[in-house]
Design a protein around this nucleic acid. Structure first.
Lengths: 340, 340
DNA sequence: CTGTAAACACAAATCGTTTCGTGTTATCCA
DNA sequence: TGGATAACACGAAACGATTTGTGTTTACAG
């Protein structure tokens, strides 16, 4: 069961190593007759070029690296799955790392992957720490595409959900149901997805001439516990919100737990809506009305973009692609009593 | 920003390449004085040995491959996360692939990873198709550890949840609540986790002298739709079950959706319990009583086992390690009326 | 003082590719 | 038919590490 080398193939086909390489890669003209002999020999030898040797010689591999903050979040898991599919279709494979949202580990992973000479990187960046954009820019020396979180003015392409549009969708939906007192949980400042969603929310509210009550906006809610605490505060206000918008799963879980803890029912006592559609929202009671993110499109576009850069087909300035989500209405929101 | 090679280090330290390699890897005796010069040079050159060149020369890399049926299942995602952590701690990194439970893709991935000269493989096997065990045995030429599903008499180590024990836990709990008419959804036959759980259930029931009603056992339920349909049948029986046990998430989701569709309430009309603890069971109403799987232990043990094999420290016969789950009681089960 | 073993350093071969430079043969046009 | 040009084939040099074999120095026992 020894693997055969290009040398074996050359011997069998009675040609030089050079010719074998040339026929296989089509990098130099080879006569029809020889080509046939070579391919025949390749088959009988069961030859597959050694990716490692190729990697060493060429300085690049058919491998891309995927780096996400936390593979255990459904969003990232789906991304990884779709991405791996997209890549294996075109003969690439995937190195993978998860870093618990820790930029130090993230940069170490980037370096590690680089030393393995990946052809490119897909990164869902942590975007924490001092001068993150700068550090990233000079840590990465291969083509790279950022997903999920956007970094403004970076030299990398980005593919992300259209958070602004998503915020419109959610906000308009709540407004249409008659909600005016909408609580909004913002995440960590500087995380683009959070910022953009919040901005979209404010804008849509303003466009509808509805004033946003400051005490209903809670910032820096990125752990379950935060959301749990927030809910207690929100629902004990003299005039509590009629709807709560959550940005991610952690918030949603915390919110639901908090409400249950207070003996409040959804949607009877308060409506709940989520930006993050990646949870098993059905089968439970209530099922959560949420945005549905088109993660397949995100990964396909990201893969396309990366490949185009790798193959040097494009040298357009970095672009930001936003993929539109849709709103999936389930049972966690109801109209405000006394509204059409 | 050019990477420095071992040659640069040798030049700076004014020694031969051999000496540099010897000091770094400790493979040959080098005098204290030279060692110091070498390390100094390594530092000033910012030298890291090129893993690719090392891989080519040594015929093996510090990379292990993880292959799972579906990374988008929470179980696999948590496994990947814990595994990557365990491996990166000891200087290994991870190639990763997901195959949608398709053995053909699985074997292609094994071959691909092998050609990249991974040092070992962690496989959550699909266990489908003709002579799966045999095919696997001669597809894999590196050390490998199987997780989740067990293959009897294979030449590989396995690490898995203790399904038999889990089934005992669940069954005894239901019995204690007074349930006698327990519906059990079995998965595809031949999948060890499903078979073992079912066997454990039967055994525990028998030990308690409770007869199992055949019409409450539904086989080959591995898609949501199957479970959805099953539930309709179960709950329209003249004497419907008082409790339903689900083996995996797909079943659980289908079951809950089916019940809701029939207007039945959990746990008022029927209790539901799950073997698969990897879902956001809290915050929803009801929260599902389920086994909690100790996936960190599973991945740690698997990594240890694999590393031991890789480093040739052990050549004991293949072992099967079973990691015990625990039962997390939530709110989806209630005592049968008229029971203590 | 000598012989031998241990300790140390190095040049060169190797892993399996791709590619550069060189040489040979065929092809075409004037 | 001669000569330029294209087409084709090949040997040898990279890529960056480890390892083998050889030679030189030091240390120590006889």
């Amino acid at each position: 069961m020894k693997l055969s080398t290009i040398k074996d193939v050359a011997r069998i086909a009675k040609v030089s190593i050079t010719t074998v390489s040339a026929t296989i890669n089509g990098t130099a003209p080879v006569s029809k007759a020889l080509q046939e002999r070579v391919w025949e020999a390749v088959k009988t030898a069961g030859y597959h070029p050694d990716p490692v040797a190729r990697n060493l010689r060429m300085g690049t591999s058919k491998t891309i690296g995927l780096i996400v903050p936390d593979i255990a979040t459904p969003w990232a898991a789906h991304l990884a799955k779709a991405m791996q599919r997209a890549l294996s279709d075109i003969g690439y494979n995937m190195l993978f790392a998860s870093n618990d949202d820790d930029p130090e580990r993230e940069f170490r992973e980037i370096e590690l992957f680089s030393s393995h000479r990946v052809a490119g990187l897909i990164i869902a960046p942590t975007t924490h720490g001092e001068d993150y954009a700068g550090r990233l820019a000079d840590a990465v020396h291969t083509p790279a595409v950022l997903v999920d979180r956007v970094i403004e003015n970076s030299r990398f392409d980005s593919v992300t959900d259209d958070n602004h549009f998503g915020a419109q969708l959610i906000t308009r939906y709540l407004l249409k149901l008659g909600h005016r007192d909408i609580a909004f949980m913002v995440g960590r400042p500087g995380i683009s997805s959070s910022d953009e969603r919040y901005a979209g929310f404010l804008e849509t509210m303003a466009a509808a001439n509805v004033t946003v009550r400051d005490e209903l906006i809670h910032h820096r809610i990125h752990l379950r516990e935060h959301a749990f605490a927030s809910v207690q505060k929100l629902m004990t206000l003299p005039r509590p919100p009629t709807a709560i918008a959550c940005i991610n799963i952690a918030q949603l879980l915390g919110t639901m737990a908090g409400l249950q803890n207070m003996g409040l029912r959804v949607p009877d006592d308060v409506s709940v809506i989520s930006f993050d559609g990646f949870h098993p929202a059905e089968g439970w009671n209530p099922s959560i009305t949420a945005l549905t993110q088109d993660i397949t499109t995100v990964s396909t576009r990201a893969a396309e973009l990366l490949l185009a850069r790798i193959e040097g087909k494009v040298d357009t300035p970095p672009q930001i692609i936003r993929v539109a989500p849709s709103l999936t209405v389930r049972t966690s929101c109801r109209a405000v009593p006394g509204t059409a």
